[in-house]
Design a protein around this nucleic acid. Sequence first.
DNA 1: CGGTTACCCTGGATGC
DNA 2: TGCATCCAGGGTAACC
Length: 278
Amino acid sequence: MPELPEVETMVRGLRPALQGQEVGRLEVLDGHLLEGDLTPESLGATFSGASVDRLERRGKWVVVLSDRGVLVIQPRMTGGFWLVSPEQSQHVRLIFSVASNKRQVWFTDARRLARIALYADMDAAEAAFARSHGPDALTIPLAVLMERLRKTSRSIKPSLMDQKVLAGIGNIYADEILHRARIHPERVASALTDAEGERLAAAIPEVLAEAIAAEGSSFDAGYKTVLGLEGGFLAENAVYGRAGKPCRVCGEAIVRAKIVGLTGRSTYSCPTCQPPPA
DNA sequence: CGGTTACCCTGGATGC
DNA sequence: TGCATCCAGGGTAACC
């Protein structure tokens, strides 16, 4: 589910509840999500009593820094946090109980694709992140982005979604960013012109910032904010989920397609604003 | 090595 | 109603 804007919204929502607080107890209800040698018992014992210093986001990771180590939670498709009673109560995987006020923070994950890891310190967490991720999408400089895209013969959309190229973009925001930059998703990444690269590098932080301001994208029974509210971005977005509807720029019907290099995922684009490769 | 697919999981929507 | 099929915002191991 969550991409960078949703994870950023989660972290901002969790900070007032957890930052500077002691976790009186952590209950781990599903060992399936745990990485390495972690067990529900070992993680619960380690993190119960932990003092939380800070919460941060790295790409699509939620990072909880504490005096008992750095807890990393990857929500992946259906993971989410709740400060209010969770809607999907049968899918609760973690329960944090704050010592000072007895309030609870729930983590749910319907599809059980989320992953949870514990690192000794932030250096170890950063090293693990760097092994599988490029620079964060919100701050990657134009020159670095272009240098990375020049090295691949893949299409631009799968390149943007490759966390090793840059971190944080998934299927929704790749489509939105490419529409904003007026680049067809099947254009070869290394063949973009300088002008297209500049439009792309500008569109990435623009679209992500707008989505963060809207508190992310909600549809169906998926992502909600930590207060159970819907993110508003899909009320204003350009292409994702809008097949057959008029492009907000030119009025042409938005097209839904499956593209090479992305098995099973849908891609939305405007055939006029984003001319396909020759 | 770069690129592509098969698969991990589960639930909701849709079709017969 | 029951059952099969498809789809989903992510990510990785294995393969060509």
